[in-house]
């Protein structure tokens, strides 16, 4: 299985995401934002956390216009898998691959702590290993994680069962306590919490591990 992890200028969780993919058995290619194509045979693209382009203009807005994001969009449109974590989620929203947007946290402050999540979907490769209604603990670290979408979009997301994770105690004001959202085909996931920060016993929790190992399992079968 092959994962491609994108580095934008200002990405700072790119290594962490690559480590998580590698630990799950992926062969990982690191991809530069100025690249115009993904490596041949890429099964899944990872858009990492960080502050792409300094979060200038709007979080993720400039990254969404970068050459590599055109390739990521083409990959997703062909039914390819992608995961965007934190800033990566913001980028996916800005590219239009995922609905909604991430606004400044309701409390205005940056917030870094481990939060409880409830798994809200069990039909995607990302969420199936947990099972519907399971509670897990994953760290968040963001300033702009307040998920917002207009009423019609939100209703559609809910109706299609595309909410992947909900906060047990909403830390940022997100509508519907939404912590992660899936594309309509279930193959693109954006989430504010950092599963790659919960993959090893020294992290203080390993609830993020199952997501990566399930991806590896699914891609190995494919």
């Amino acid at each position: 299985m092959k994962a491609a992890v994108v580095t934008f200028p200002g990405s700072n969780c790119d290594r962490d995401l690559a480590v998580a993919f590698e630990a799950a058995g992926f062969e990982v290619a690191r991809v530069w934002h100025k690249d115009t194509e993904l490596p041949q045979g890429t099964d899944i693209v990872g858009l990492p956390g960080g502050f792409s382009y300094g979060d200038y203009l709007r979080c993720g807005a400039i990254a969404a216009q970068s050459p590599i994001c055109r390739a990521v969009a083409a990959h997703a449109e062909k039914g390819g898998y992608a995961i965007g974590i934190c800033n990566g989620f913001q980028v996916l929203c800005e590219t239009g691959l995922l609905p909604g947007t991430l606004m400044r946290n309701a409390g205005i402050k940056f917030i870094c702590k481990t939060v409880g999540l409830r798994v809200a979907n069990e039909d995607s490769v990302f969420t199936a290993p947990y099972g519907l209604g399971t509670d897990i603990e994953i760290p968040v670290a963001h300033h702009d994680g307040n998920f917002y979408a207009d009423d019609a979009t939100l209703a559609a997301i809910e109706a299609e069962g595309r909410v992947a994770f909900r906060y047990l105690e909403n830390p940022n004001g997100s509508l519907g306590d939404i912590a992660g959202v899936l594309s309509s085909n279930g193959r693109v996931l954006g989430m504010m919490p950092h599963p790659e920060r919960a993959i090893d016993a020294r992290h203080g929790g390993t609830d993020g591990q199952a997501l990566f190992t399930a991806l590896a399992g699914a891609m190995a079968e494919a």
Binding site: D16, G49, K113, P139, A141, R202, H203
Partner: peptide, 28 residues
């Protein structure tokens, strides 16, 4: 002091073994 250190990213780089609030921080 969580009000203070929760405004700081404590885990980026994936090697924080002991986060703030425990006397010493520990980084692998």
């Amino acid at each position: 002091k969580a009000w203070v250190y929760e405004q700081y990213d404590q885990q980026v780089m994936g090697d924080t073994v002991v986060a703030p609030g425990a006397g010493s921080g520990v980084t692998r």
